[in-house]
Design a protein around this nucleic acid. Sequence first.
DNA 1: TATTGTTATACTCTATAACTATA
DNA 2: TATAGTTATAGAGTATAACAATA
Lengths: 167, 167
Amino acid sequence: MSVTTPQPAPSFPAAQLPEELVASATFLLKRLGFAAKELTMAAYEKSGLHPYHYAILLVLGEGSPETQGSIADTLGYDRGQLVGLLDELEERGLVERRRDPNDRRRHVVRLTPDGKRALQKLRTLSRQIEDEFLAPLNETDRRKLHTLLLRLAEKHEPRCAISVARR
Amino acid sequence: MSVTTPQPAPSFPAAQLPEELVASATFLLKRLGFAAKELTMAAYEKSGLHPYHYAILLVLGEGSPETQGSIADTLGYDRGQLVGLLDELEERGLVERRRDPNDRRRHVVRLTPDGKRALQKLRTLSRQIEDEFLAPLNETDRRKLHTLLLRLAEKHEPRCAISVARR
DNA sequence: TATTGTTATACTCTATAACTATA
DNA sequence: TATAGTTATAGAGTATAACAATA
């Protein structure tokens, strides 16, 4: 079952992209990154949440106490941007902010029980999106792809690389 | 030799992303797509042009006469957006627009000699970017990655899929 | 003086839709 | 009436920097 509403097929096949673009893995990566974002956004629409929210909930779900700064640093988000995202999560009762008594500048952010339930639902949604996006590939190919992407991410997204080192 | 100015290494290693995100090929694709865009933009900076311009020049370089509409459809660009991009290329003397005498609503767009030279330079730049972005992978791995991405693009970017069918 | 979280501002992109001239 | 190209506008998203509270 699709997580997103199927798009109507275009009545005329679009003209084809220049060969040199299609031959470039970098170009395909940019376009597919955009397509993945669109698919994800469409799948999240019903939930009223954003993939950003999911990432935040995941960080909080790992258990160790987090301040707004540490969340932002972990995910590579801007701190100003994070304020609004946490506002939205707090309004929905999924997280709570408490002043850190040891350093009253800091807010310690925690998941509420509702937040934990929401995280579980988003985990399921996330798996569905992954499965739909990677549908053309079998298990072996998916693992191959992931391995190759991770090797690139080691260079271009150091935050991912550290995870590799930890293995 | 790098096409982009090397970034200073962060003094503190950033905290690591949640495992579930790093384990997702879709997530990596989104982040890497963004990284590819940033790398590309940095490399294009000196040229005063945008990757969009390169794609347009490539389409025109294929020889068959193109109208603004056909260029937009081929690349998946909005027609309104294309106007400004062509203005910029025309100001630099890289393309010229002529009214189509058979249908005076249409503009036929063609490369100028300067435009052909600019296209060659951007082809070189494009190869350098590709090589820098894929640096962690050897030739075999690059081909594997490209094959896998193309399979995904068949589903998520039909404009790429047609190229495959033509092979 | 530096840092945490907050707010305000501005800038880039993009999507939409009006507008003209031609058909 | 519909289409090609143009222009204008508004909206989302993002980046920047000023700000208050606390260290």
